[in-house]
């Protein structure tokens, strides 16, 4: 029987304020949706165990915590991402137009070792609004943009109604895993500053 290796994969979610990034995370991880919009407060990163073939791994999904609102994400947020999710609102042309900026910002800040092949996934969210009548970005237009940027996988979702969210994140997880495997990162031995464990006797006199 093949051994099960546990892997931690970092996924970051980018996009304009208000497109539903936090709701997508919550729908995927917690199966919850809140109608009350507030620019993100209290969202951090969420983790979810995912099994793919014989592999068990932990997806660590990072929200922007609202710091994207005034373009104030730090380089630490981007570092080590295995997959980057770009989210726009199908009812907001501006949020779609800004995908290009978000993608370029990611490539600058994260500096992946293979920028041409770094895995992105694009999500067009809020397809439920007004039964689709207030939609301004056509699926065709979005798919064309994704194709032009190296065939980025594309999903249309409703975080509110849970449409296509699972499918989108399955793709994200698969791509993150593929990316995480290919990276040969230098992984120094780190110490754990915060976790509880058995107390150690302190008996040293320098």
């Amino acid at each position: 029987m093949p051994s099960r290796r546990r892997t931690l994969l970092k996924v970051i979610i980018l996009g304009d304020s208000g497109v539903g990034k936090t709701s997508l995370m919550n729908q995927y991880v917690n199966k919850k949706f809140s109608n009350q919009y507030k620019a993100t407060i209290g969202a951090d990163f969420l983790t979810k165990e995912v099994q793919f073939e014989d592999r068990l791994f932990t997806l660590q999904i990072w929200d922007t915590a609202g710091q994207e609102r005034f373009q104030s994400l730090g380089v630490a947020f981007y570092r080590g991402a295995d997959c980057c999710v770009l989210v726009y609102d199908v009812n907001s042309m501006k949020s779609f137009d800004n995908l290009n900026n978000w993608r370029e910002e990611f490539l600058i800040q994260a500096s992946p070792s293979d920028p041409e092949n770094f895995p992105f996934v694009v999500i067009g969210n809020k397809i439920d609004i007004d039964g689709g009548n207030s939609r301004v970005v056509s699926e065709k237009k979005a798919r064309a943009w994704c194709a032009s940027k190296g065939n980025i996988p594309y999903f249309e979702t409703s975080a509110k109604e849970g449409i296509n969210v699972e499918e989108a994140f399955q793709c994200i997880a698969k791509n993150a895993l593929k990316s995480g495997e290919e990276e040969e990162l230098y992984l120094p031995d780190t110490i754990d500053v915060g976790n509880s464990s058995q107390p150690r006797a302190t008996g040293c006199e320098c």
């Binding site: 407060i41 609202g66 710091q67 609102r69 005034f70 104030s72 380089v75 630490a76």
Partner: peptide
């Protein structure tokens, strides 16, 4: 950056 993220998670606005 880590403490700034803490602030943002609890509602701090960053510019």
């Amino acid at each position: 950056q880590a403490f700034a993220r803490l602030s943002a998670v609890y509602g701090g606005t960053y510019m």
